[in-house]
Amino acid sequence: MLSLSKSADSKAPLAELIHQAGGIILGKERQIRLALACLLARGHLLIEDLPGVGKTTLAHLLARLLGMQFQRIQFTSDMLPADIIGVSVFDRASGGFVFHPGPIFAQLVLADEVNRATPKTQSALLEAMEERQVTTEGATRVLPAGFFVIATQNPSQQIGTFPLPESQLDRFLMRIMLGYPDRAAERELLRGSDRREMIASLKPCLTPEELPALQMKAARIHVSDALIEYVQALVAHTRTSPDYPVGLSPRAALALLAAARAWALLEGRSHALPEDIQAVLPSVAVHRLQAAGDAVGYRSAEAIAASLIEAVPLP
């Protein structure tokens, strides 16, 4: 008989994690899953939304539940790259320079309001994200294993922002939006206790060794030729249709597959399905299809993805 759920064992801690997180951030299970999938696919996450909808809370929550070492960087317009990466200071005792690592040397980095910083500082962060290492003063320093950035961004119409250019948006595997909670979830939120305290009281669901293992597992999820053909058809459509100013790059296609694998893992499957592609498409593809600073609401990202999905038949 066919074995339909080979990975039931890995589903348990992840399901528990999602359940716990859902108790803190109410009515946003989909976004929590996406964030988790992004982490499992070893990508970085960009959360774009108005202040106060729970971006920071989500980052805190993930760090706590995953048992990761957490650092937060609040981006401001007067920030310098050294404020992120770190700086060498002369140590009189040893008679040499000693490197004081910046806040980026952590497993999970929350880059809060990344579009408030100047492009120079932004690119320091984005370079570190891409290379997973930092080079200052001639020395290359590797960032901790499982380095994961959650950047938050305000809608760029807001005053005092430097919107990330397309090339840098591309560095983020996913962009998600939280959106306002619905009425029932908001009522529960208002009734409940302080979220920070609740997070502090949570126990990590994963041990530090489990996360890399899960990431390995996600990368090994089977992707069939039929699915690759589907990804190609989607990408080809964005390249030829006049509806999109820019088409999806090969990197975007790779990102789609990686995210779909992680999503399949979260679903407890050993192979990825077209549904997985379709589930991650709004978060993986839409920010790569739009011009910079084109802030769209959560709904319209969904709508763009839906129109793309419906334009491309399954091969």
Partner: peptide
Amino acid sequence: FPWEGPRA
């Protein structure tokens, strides 16, 4: 639907 996956 032409774009509908098997599960859906």
